[in-house]
Design a protein around this nucleic acid. Sequence first.
RNA 1: GGUCGCAUAGCUCAGCUGGAUAGAGCACCUGCCUUCUAAGCAGGCGGUCCCAGGUUCGAAUCCUGGUGCGAUCACCA
Length: 591
Amino acid sequence: MDITQSIENSVKNYLQENYQVHVDNFEFQQTRKEFEGDRTLVVFPLLRYVKTNPVKLGEELGAHLVEDLEQIIAFNVIKGFLNLSFSDSFFVNQLEEIIKTSDFGTQKKNEDSDKIMVEFSSPNTNKPLHLGHVRNNLLGHSVSEILKATGKEIFKTQIINDRGIHICKSMLAWQKFGEGETPQSTQMKGDHFVGKYYVIFDQKYKEEIKQLQEDGHSEEEAKKEAPLLKDAQKLLKKWEENDAETVALWEKMNTWVYKGFETTYANLGVDFDKNYYESETYILGKEFVLKGLEDGIFYKKEDGSIWVDLSDEGLDEKLLLRSDGTSVYMTQDIGTAIQRVKDFQINGLVYTVGNEQDYHFKVLFLILKKLGFSWAEHLYHLSYGMVELPDGKMKSREGTVVDADQLIEEMINSAQEIAEELGKIDDLATNEKQNLYNAIGKGALKYFILKVDPRKNMLFDPKESIDFQGNTGPFIQYTHARIQSLKRKANLADLSVAQYTSALNIKEKDIIKHLMKLPATLTQAGEELNPALICNYTYDLVKLFNSFYQNSPIITKKEEITQFRISIANQVAKAIALNLSLLGIESPQRM
RNA sequence: GGUCGCAUAGCUCAGCUGGAUAGAGCACCUGCCUUCUAAGCAGGCGGUCCCAGGUUCGAAUCCUGGUGCGAUCACCA
């Protein structure tokens, strides 16, 4: 039985017998490091049931627990806090338990596992991915891995926003100004190539607006009447009419972009089980809206448009179908959700989408509930904050974006520079070195982004490059590599032995205590869809281990001690490797 | 203007459902490579937890009001 549970039962019985009170809720916390002890029972809340002085009650309970439970060997009371100390054998037993448990901390999936779809990335096909997408992708991927580790079956998906006026802008600009050049002829990555024409469109469009304004039109008029915009709208119309030439051009340019995305995804280490394309899904949803209208859930305005009234829920009215009968964003999201449940028999769906769409998803989920879908209870919007630059938000059209490919490359280069300076891996083959620079550079980037609470906005300053020291990915990777080196040096036959007869030192206990918290941490990270919890946990673990490492020799002349310490080190390394893998980060053997 | 979110050290961030003297990293300053990898360790400096009330044994945490910043409120997606 869990030790906290044992303590709780023991205290419960004691209070029942001696005070005739029944208490169900006890408050425990880990003992702060300033005080002696391993776990603390907060006595204050008990005073409601037992009218006495907190110190007196603490002393009483402490004495009782030492008597009653063999794992507890000492106690002290400070104010209303009862600090309990556990025996060495308790910790050794815990460590043995951890060693015996394969894939400690994780849960296996079975037939009853929830099937959950995680949507993330969902790019537009008119420009390359930037830092905002990087946060999205890393979160989506990491949350998927965390959910898998908590026993869920996961389907990863993205919806590719491949249709609309923005694509037509790139198409048009390429037609008019491209002179037939291609990604091949210019040696450009396809997404960057198409993105270039999106920018060209915007420049030329602005020139036209300026010209029109000089000719006496108002700004508003100029924006609407610019020939380029009109042409782009015409192109969209042709696309919608399935005009062969337009569709062929659209397909050609999208193919270029997809090729570019593939490279970036591979570079980030993310992948998808299925892609949905908006060009296919934008027609979905209409039938359900009409059905909802029949059932009286929605209503029709005089002009024929269909709306839902959410004022009872404190929200507004929302358009679901235009007066001309065509769909809006909400319509297709309704349809797409239903489609996905049908495609994969899922009973949960996580949307990794920025917090600017909080309102949209609140409305979407409400509508699906109103339509009576039972699975609508299990829709989650993983609403993450924006990545801000020192001078504000990123804007693609204004060129104030941090390009994903470029950023990754810079990180790898920095990793290389640092590694070469340190010179610890000079003996490795060139491709091994390159793999390491890759792992470390990306480790730094991924950890940097994932360690902050997803819900919060975060700041990225391109001038101050991402650190490789302190609370960083490389710091954690380094500790892992160092433990691997220890294992090689110690060269023990069996790492699963953890008997110990000497007294444990405080750092050993701290590490075991922390390892014991791994399963709960993963569970919580899964429930909250929050990879930052994994980062924090791992960082704390690594700090504890490093302190141990620097202050006590691991490999000693006494075989028993070496065996025990290497076993601890090995479990730490396993926990690091597991957690980093949940973050999409590699754990190098050397560095 | 309505709604939602955020505000903690010079900077970037932790701080779980209220608990002990509010923690890390970076930056700055000391010390530690002749025993296991110094991308490390040990320590120092640094706080009006935005402001004002309230709830109670106890508030950075919960409630109310205010201030500041951000997002959102399209027959765009």
